[in-house]
Write a protein that binds this DNA or RNA. Structure first.
Lengths: 151, 151
DNA sequence: CTCAGTGCAAAGGATTTGCATGCCG
DNA sequence: CGGCATGCAAATCCTTTGCACTGAG
């Protein structure tokens, strides 16, 4: 299960720097800003949200940096119901979790399931992989519905 | 794999017609064509795929009809890794299933899980809903990996 | 000095929309 | 006849890309 407690941002940044380095990429101030924003968000963010939380970040640069960060395994892109891509830190930098997707406004919130549930899922996934020959890297489990704000 | 023999497409079309009617919408030949294509596909289709399987369907009309069909609860929009939206028949018109998403080519295939697994999921979902107050209409469970063709 | 990173503006591309026409009811 | 469905083309809008500039090494 790894994924220590990375509430400690310095460890997060160290890990991020290491992964970027492994990808021959630098950990620039802009990239660090993006990581910081995602780390404190607690939910996947769409680009406009990232921009508004940052200080004069250029849209194109953020997009470009997100690509680099995703490539390095630091960031993960998630899709919702609207047509904004949303971004969050890679799961091994945070905590294993799933998403509550609001079909009304597109907001994505995190939630964690019980250990027992996760075990069952893991078992089922392994089973499926065996049966279908599909090489599953990871899975995603989302609940789609209406969030409190929209209800 | 496909949903195999469309034993009774007439029932599908009847149901579809009813749902459209409930939405004050007509079941036109074009809409029927789209439903037929999705019914025989056995996997979610991107728009170009729908067009190529149809006979001179206009792109914009198909998009428009997909919106209408989705609105009426006949069609469901699913997202993959590429930037094509994909469409499939609503789950209650087919069979409860999940998706194998290829992170390489974006293809989405169907798979069904064991009854036991689904029960556990249902229980967990209810639990989450109770804890978070999130009104979950449905859930989605996808396995992301590399399909046989891309491997 | 070199070259990756950045910002601005313009381009791309899937999806949506305006408008004129055709057809079902 | 009237209004919705359709096709075509143009418009949208998120995202990507071209290009010139800046700063770290």
């Amino acid at each position: 299960m790894a994924s220590a407690d990375l509430q400690d941002t310095s460890e997060l940044h160290e890990t991020t720097a290491a992964r970027l380095r492994a990808d021959q990429q630098r950990y620039t101030p802009r990239r660090r800003a993006v990581v910081d924003i995602l780390a404190t968000a607690g939910q996947p963010l769409a680009l406009p949200e990232i921009l508004s939380r940052g200080d004069a970040l250029a849209q194109s640069s953020v997009y470009r940096n997100l690509v680099v960060l995703e490539q390095a395994g630091v960031v993960r892109r998630v899709t919702s119901t609207d047509d904004f891509a949303r971004y969050e830190l890679a799961e091994d930098l945070t905590e294993h979790h799933h998403h509550l997707i609001c079909s009304s406004c597109g907001t994505v919130d995190d939630f964690t399931a019980s250990r027992r549930f996760e075990q069952t899922v893991a078992r089922a996934v392994a089973e499926i992989a065996r049966d279908t020959g599909f090489d599953a890297h990871h899975h995603r489990i989302d609940l789609i519905g209406v969030c409190n704000r929209c209800a």
